[in-house]
Amino acid sequence: MQLLVGDKQVIHRAEAAKRLLSQQAHHAASASELGVDALLSMQYPGIAGPQIAKVQAFEIIARVRELVADSKIKADSAKDYEKKAQHLLSMMDAGEMPCEVERWINSLDVYAGQANSFRACKAAACWYLRQKLRDLLSQQDRHQRAQEFGAPWLKSVELIAELEEVYEAVYTYTRQVPKPIQGFSLPVGESKKRDLKVIAKKYPNWVSLMREGAAGTKYVDAQRILELIGCRPEELEQGVTVTRSEPQTVTFKVHGAKVTKAAGQPWRKISVPISLLADDWTNRLHDQRSFTVKIDSKDGLRKSLQRISKRVLKGVPFATAYVYRHAFATMLRDSGHTVEEIGACMGHSVAETQRLYGFRKGGGRKVKPMQVSGYSVEVPREVRPLKKNKLRSVLA
């Protein structure tokens, strides 16, 4: 797979430069006294490292300033948010998850059975993370006022970038509605990822069964889109454009949902081999080169998928749009694609977010690529990797 940002292939040189600087500052006693120039030029001779690092740092600072520049809330609301956030943090401390994103998500999932509680806790988490971003911005401001733009300043900006990615993942996270269990008054946590495992175990050919069941329905084209690119139902409401970009390639242009000024992909272009398309679509593209698939409402799509599931997938959960989304992520992962590539296809700007989708076969073990999917994707924003080290010292 080729991952593009705009018209250029993604190169994580600036990120690598930041990691190099951080590592050298950690292992060398004199690193903090070295300028950005010296630290970067050790590993990247001939590259304008200081310019890369400094420009990127100021872009991060400007972006995060805009992110946290929201209106003030009442003192009582802030007190309530603080109380809820501390409760979430206490649950995070009780767990052993190494990844900060997963730690926040797991604590929020405790309240997945109650929509109001989930929304309140998520709002508290976002408020808390914005407060910590403001604190980190103040720390780097002190370096700026002192005209100190060496390793300590760049390290403080790196912490801001890491925490921003955590915030983005929490802000865009959607409640996974639990399924009730007969005989119990309280629901247990359930996700579409687990639904996919149950469906695929009983019906390995569930996709083809659903495809056959959709014949003649008004959502047959939308269901094909879900199967091929795993987009969100909200994105189908906006319309997905299918174009024959090359003789053997078809490109799907998706206008992103769950997009903010700092999170998500405003659009993405996913290219797939034309051989994956149904014959009627191939003929359609031969005649008109491009067409758009659009639904009236995601609720109508959901009901259609539920009716078909009830008919062809008996005894298992419904194959909803998000089950298709998890299946798409699983296919890409089993085909050997990188987390950045998968994240771009899913419409994310943080690579770690894709870990919430799909699963690995064999109980979570890494598998060797079984096939080459032939997929490629172009996005306007770089899919940034999220470090897995704990940020608890920053959050405390």
Rank of each mutant, 00 (worst) to 15 (best):
T338P: 02
I61K: 14
E382R: 12
G95A: 12
E378Q: 10
A115T: 13
E164T: 05
P273F: 10
L209V: 04
H348P: 04
L236D: 06
G315M: 04
L163P: 01
T172P: 00
S297G: 12
L154S: 03
R365P: 00
P273A: 11
F359T: 07
K122T: 07
V188I: 15
L89G: 01
G239F: 05
H87S: 12
G239P: 06
V101G: 00
A125R: 01
F252Q: 06
E378G: 02
D141I: 01
I274M: 14
L196F: 12
S304L: 09
S107F: 00
M42D: 11
D80G: 03
A351P: 02
Y167C: 05
Q223W: 02
V157S: 05
K201S: 12
V207E: 14
G230D: 08
Q265G: 11
W104V: 09
P204V: 06
R232M: 10
Q43L: 13
F252D: 05
S376R: 06
H27S: 08
P266R: 11
R211P: 01
L276H: 10
A94W: 05
S335A: 15
E352V: 07
H143I: 07
Q223I: 15
A329P: 05
A151C: 08
K201E: 14
H286R: 13
M346Y: 02
G364T: 04
I47N: 05
F252R: 06
A53E: 09
L276Y: 12
L186Q: 14
V293G: 07
E168R: 11
A69Q: 11
K8W: 04
L108S: 02
I73Q: 08
K79C: 02
F149Y: 15
L228Q: 04
A62N: 09
M210W: 07
K253Y: 13
S30T: 04
V242A: 11
G189T: 01
A321E: 08
K202I: 05
G113M: 09
D296W: 11
L186P: 01
A17C: 05
Y219E: 11
R134G: 08
K155V: 06
R360W: 13
M42Q: 14
V339I: 12
V377T: 02
Q147K: 11
K368G: 03
D80Y: 01
M370N: 09
N205A: 11
G300D: 05
L108C: 02
A62F: 02
R134V: 13
M210P: 07
V383T: 03
D93W: 00
A14Q: 03
K387V: 07
R325P: 04
A125D: 03
V323F: 10
R244S: 15
L108G: 01
C121K: 04
L209I: 07
